[in-house]
């Protein structure tokens, strides 16, 4: 498998969009840490970048890359290789390359300026979100033959995870304000990897506020070792399941 991965990584790292993405993250995070008077405010500004830009770039770039590679994939399939190997190689190549550019662009500044629990959690969340959205992109591209349709689909998916889902939850919260929804909220947060990552970061960043009111539930769940473990497991599921589904689809796909 590593036969292909290293070439794919090198190819992606030389991609103009990926270079621009890395540079953008780097400029963004350096300016955020240098312009704000305190570093924790810098982290706050970086939070939205991580929760919005990282998923967007990961999912759109990966989808385009997969469509552009369709002939290359055909060539690989005609070689003495398992399809599983090919698919996992492409996935690994994309995730390693995108995580690496996230790490260089945002991770290193975070480690330099804010090597705290919040910083580390942000870094972890950013990398996990990169991986998750690559997996979702792979699933979307393998199930949709048409490139334009596929890209449209992933942009909608991103919009859903980044914005619509939260709007929907807010709406439901107010519709059912009379019911005790705290416990349900923990479950609901598992339905969106962006939300789950955000809550994990919040637990580091706004721990005092989360300890109040709803906090009782959040503390009892996410505050404990097992809660954090479960949250991370859910995030892992968020890329394992799409990846597994896409692999199943790819194995029987006609090229």
């Amino acid at each position: 498998m590593k036969k292909i991965v290293k070439y794919v990584i090198v190819d992606i790292l030389r991609n103009k969009i990926v270079i621009a993405y890395t540079a953008f993250l780097l400029v963004m995070s350096l300016s955020v840490f240098n312009l704000e008077d305190n570093a924790s405010k810098g982290l706050l500004s970086l939070l939205n970048v991580i929760l919005l830009i990282v998923p967007l770039v990961s999912i759109v770039f990966s989808t385009i890359y997969m469509y552009n590679s369709s002939e290359f994939i055909e060539l690989l399939v005609s070689q003495p290789l398992r399809r599983k190997t090919i698919w996992l190689s492409l996935f690994s190549g994309l995730t390693v390359a995108l995580s690496l550019s996230f790490f260089i662009g945002a991770g290193i500044p975070i480690l330099l300026y804010q090597p705290t629990g919040t910083g580390i959690m942000m870094l972890t969340a950013g990398i996990l979100l990169s991986v998750i959205f690559v997996a979702i992109a792979l699933l979307a591209s393998v199930t949709t033959r048409d490139k334009a349709k596929g890209i449209g689909k992933v942009i909608l998916l991103w919009l859903y995870f980044a914005l619509l889902f939260d709007g929907l939850v807010l709406f439901l919260l107010f519709q059912f304000a009379d019911y005790p929804l705290e416990k349900a909220m923990v479950g609901v947060s598992a339905l969106n990897p962006v939300d789950l990552s955000r809550i994990l970061i919040l637990l580091q960043m706004d721990v005092s506020a989360l300890m109040g009111y709803t906090g009782a539930i959040f503390r009892n769940f996410f505050g404990t070792q097992s809660g954090i473990t479960i949250a991370f497991l859910v995030l892992v599921l968020w890329f394992v399941v799409p990846l597994w589904l896409s692999l199943r689809k790819f194995r029987s796909k006609d090229l």
Binding site: D166, L170, L173, L181, D195, T214
Partner: peptide, 18 residues
């Protein structure tokens, strides 16, 4: 919002609430 509807704390710092 959180004062009126405590579970909404879950959405704090999300894009929509910003």
């Amino acid at each position: 919002i959180v004062e009126r509807n405590p579970p909404a704390m879950m959405l704090f710092r999300s894009f929509i609430t910003t």
